[in-house]
Simulated scan of single mutants.
Amino acid sequence: MMTFGSIFRISASATMLVLAGCMSVADMAGYDSGTMNEQAAKNYSQLVQQARSRQVLDTTSATSARVHRVFERLVPVADRVNRTGTPFRWQMSVIRSNELNAWAMPGGKMAVYTGMVERLNLTDDEIAAIVGHEMSHALLEHSRRALGGQVLAGIGGALLAEQTGLDSNLIGLGTDLAANKPFSRHQENEADALGVRLMARAGYNPQAAINVWNKLNAAGSTNGITILSTHPANESRIRAIRAMLSELMQVYRQNRR
């Protein structure tokens, strides 16, 4: 979710051409949207089972209830902007872990870690910023684009290792790829822009997205945390969200509950 040292310095137009090429390579390798979503669903099911067996699947806490409530309010909005050609079967799991983390797999399989909500003392609007951002990665099929880039460059997937002991190979198909992968800056900017639109349309205050990144920056200044090691926050992204606020606040006011 944040700043990355640029691996390839190419023009914006060239970037878009390569992104399109990556999608084609992923298709040729058999990773069309339907296939990736199906594989992600299988991996997600195994991961949820692992979490349940390790007693870290949180289905009863107030934090879990809040995350699911926000998620369910965002899903209809996300469905309306789905342009992948494949309907998503959205699912959310809350993982009991002190880690500051959240992720989304292809097809809308998601998780939020309790540490994200509880350590940062997130409001519902701030939870919506996190969930909306991760939803946007799935809607924009960033994992599929990144997979195409990996095929082209011969890059193996660097996957998240979880404090909970869950199998990182199950998570790796759909979570945000590590920061040193090509096009990550572009993908994160896209997810920022779409994520704040999703939350505004669902009636959540988009200004909360800025609060979240500021909280993550503050936490990252004193703690090495997963979400910042893969997506280090920066002021340019906060400025980009601020530049959208005039438009977004109108949308928010129209949908506020």
Rank of each mutant, 00 (worst) to 15 (best):
A41M: 03
A62N: 14
Q39A: 13
Y44R: 04
N37I: 05
V56E: 09
Q50L: 02
A65N: 12
V67L: 10
R54A: 12
T35Q: 11
T35S: 15
S64I: 11
T63I: 11
A65W: 06
L57V: 01
A62M: 08
N43Y: 07
A40Y: 06
R54I: 13
S64Q: 11
Q39K: 15
Q50K: 05
T59V: 00
V56W: 02
N37T: 04
V48T: 06
A62F: 07
K42A: 07
A62Y: 10
K42F: 02
S61L: 02
K42V: 11
R52P: 00
L57K: 03
S53V: 02
S45K: 14
S45E: 15
L57Q: 01
V56I: 15
R54V: 08
D58K: 10
S61V: 07
A41L: 03
R54L: 13
T60I: 02
N43L: 03
T60G: 06
Q50E: 15
Q55N: 13
D58Q: 05
L57W: 06
T35N: 14
T35K: 14
R66E: 09
A51P: 08
Q50R: 05
V48W: 03
E38R: 12
V67S: 04
V48Y: 03
R66L: 07
V48I: 13
T60W: 10
A62R: 10
Q50T: 08
S61M: 00
T63N: 00
T59M: 00
Q46I: 01
E38D: 15
T35D: 13
N43M: 08
Q46V: 01
S61R: 02
Y44A: 02
V48C: 04
T59R: 11
S64C: 14
T35E: 15
Q55T: 07
A51S: 13
